[in-house]
Design a protein around this nucleic acid. Structure first.
Lengths: 188, 188
DNA sequence: GTCTATACAGTGATAGAC
DNA sequence: GTCTATCACTGTATAGAC
């Protein structure tokens, strides 16, 4: 058993704080409160301070999606890749109870601080999804539009579910998004 | 000509500051910088400080949508109401160059501060849109789902457009959302 | 109505003891 | 690796002169 913390142990807790309060709303004291670690320990792991903490969280999210969503999308059959994506999305966002930190960061001045990471995350997601749909028989143009609509639909569903304080709204929207991607030959 | 400011004159400037930096990222000094008004004047108009300023901005946005979108949706023919909504949406969000402050506030701890206003805005929007679609011949269930999908699609398009720094992405998505609402008899 | 001056808590960050 | 003490600074908010 280990008592001393490791950097990797802290990141999920950091993520939760940033998700709750946003980048600007997250203070070191709130982080200390949640993690139980003093500023000394925090700055030991993240010499760059709050910005490095948020950056590490973003990288961690990126890794998770790369491993659980983007890679399966490209490596497995389109059906399996898509089924895995929707399952992962439902799980990760806890059926609408958890927001997308990358999307939240994108909406205010925080975006400029992490522009590359944010654009990369969404770019790789829509890219992998487009490729998958093309492999499933969609035309390039229809696949690109549908991929964007799916990703943006997930983000919008998170916004609306939180705004209305109704997580079930997310689940319903995701069901419809999934169904829309399942029709093999796009009629639009 | 009037030199002294009025409360109503300041609100659009306040809105822009909040949109740029988010609620937590907006400081009185940034507001002073943008409006040219000292703290004395600011607190003269908004005794409740920053929270009252944001509240006034939210109420102003609400009024605008009520007047330009929700009421026309309910008062005019479904076709005219819908056409007006899409035109207003494109105009208001400046083809993807401007985010939705209500949606942005919904994503972090700011939501709890303005929960009623945020839920009311989205509730009246999806409500008016649902009613309009029912009047246009949709079934209740299909109308409600489609209304939510449209509103959530707009929010998601704003997130994705800003994340990818590509306003055109918003315009394309809105075109598809509009087209999806135009099919008179929902096949889904 | 607008300004300046000011109060004071909280901010991110650093240094150094252990 | 973790803590406490402390730093300079900015945050919101108030008081009062004009």
């Amino acid at each position: 058993m280990r008592i001393l913390a490791e950097r990797a142990d802290i990141i999920p807790q950091l993520a939760e704080v940033f998700r709750t309060f946003g980048y600007e709303g997250t203070s070191l004291s709130r982080i200390t409160e949640r993690t139980g670690l003093g500023k000394g320990s925090l700055y030991h792991f993240f010499p760059g301070g709050k910005e490095e903490m948020a950056s590490a969280v973003l990288a961690d999210i990126d890794d998770w999606f790369e491993r659980e969503v983007f890679t399966p999308l490209l490596r497995e059959t389109p059906e399996n890749g898509l089924a895995g994506m929707w399952k992962a999305v439902r799980c990760y966002f806890q059926s609408g109870g958890r927001i997308c930190l990358v999307g939240a960061f994108a909406l205010d001045g925080t975006r400029d601080r992490f522009a590359a990471g944010i654009a990369g995350y969404f770019g790789r997601w829509t890219g992998a999804l487009t490729t998958t749909l093309v492999r499933a028989g969609w035309t390039d143009r229809a696949a690109e539009d549908a991929a964007r609509d799916a990703v943006l639909g997930i983000q919008g569903a998170l916004v609306l579910a939180r705004a209305m304080n109704d997580p079930a709204l997310f689940s319903g929207a995701v069901d419809r998004l999934e169904a829309r991607l399942r029709q093999p030959a796009p009629s639009r």
